[in-house]
Amino acid sequence: MEQQTFAPAETMQLHELLNFKTICMTTSKMMEGVVFDQELKALLEKDVRLSIPAINDLQGLLGKAPKLR
């Protein structure tokens, strides 16, 4: 069976998505410590909790991508 890979442009887009998602999650995690509103704090915690599997999925997809030089 033929192995599926990504085009170089798709690989770069995956990198961009992974970077964006990681930055967003890091920001949410850092803001949890300085936010006093409980609703906002709950939203930030939910964002972090949901971001972790999304980041893992993106990393898994990048594992299938060809190595760029």
Rank of each mutant, 00 (worst) to 15 (best):
E2V: 15
E2D: 08
E2F: 06
E2S: 07
Q3N: 09
Q4K: 06
T5Q: 11
T5E: 08
T5D: 07
F6R: 05
F6A: 04
F6Q: 02
A7Q: 15
A7H: 08
P8I: 12
P8K: 06
P8V: 11
A9C: 03
E10L: 10
E10M: 09
E10A: 11
E10R: 06
T11M: 07
T11D: 07
M12I: 15
M12G: 01
Q13F: 09
Q13R: 14
Q13P: 00
H15F: 09
E16W: 08
E16F: 07
E16H: 08
E16D: 10
L17K: 07
L18K: 04
L18H: 02
L18E: 06
N19E: 15
N19V: 11
F20L: 15
F20C: 07
F20K: 11
F20A: 09
T22K: 05
T22S: 08
I23D: 04
I23F: 05
I23S: 01
C24E: 15
C24K: 12
C24H: 09
T26N: 02
T26A: 08
S28C: 15
S28Q: 12
S28N: 10
S28D: 13
M31H: 01
M31T: 10
M31R: 06
M31V: 08
M31Y: 03
E32K: 03
E32I: 14
E32A: 04
G33C: 09
G33L: 13
V34K: 05
V34H: 00
V34L: 09
V34F: 01
V35A: 03
V35Y: 01
F36M: 14
D37P: 01
D37H: 06
D37Q: 11
Q38A: 10
E39H: 05
L40E: 05
L40R: 10
L40Y: 02
K41E: 07
K41L: 11
K41F: 02
K41S: 06
K41N: 06
K41M: 10
A42D: 13
A42L: 13
L43W: 05
L44K: 01
L44P: 00
E45D: 11
E45A: 15
E45V: 14
E45H: 04
E45F: 02
E45N: 10
K46S: 09
K46W: 04
K46N: 10
R49H: 05
R49M: 08
L50W: 04
L50M: 12
L50I: 10
L50K: 06
S51E: 13
I52W: 00
I52R: 02
P53C: 09
P53E: 10
A54D: 13
D57G: 04
L58K: 03
L58Q: 03
L58S: 03
Q59C: 09
G60Q: 13
G60V: 12
G60K: 13
G60W: 08
G60I: 13
L61P: 00
L61H: 01
L61C: 03
L61K: 08
L62R: 05
L62G: 02
L62P: 01
L62K: 05
G63A: 13
K64W: 06
K64Q: 14
K64P: 00
K64I: 13
A65M: 12
A65F: 09
A65N: 12
K67H: 04
K67N: 10
K67P: 00
R69K: 14
R69Q: 12
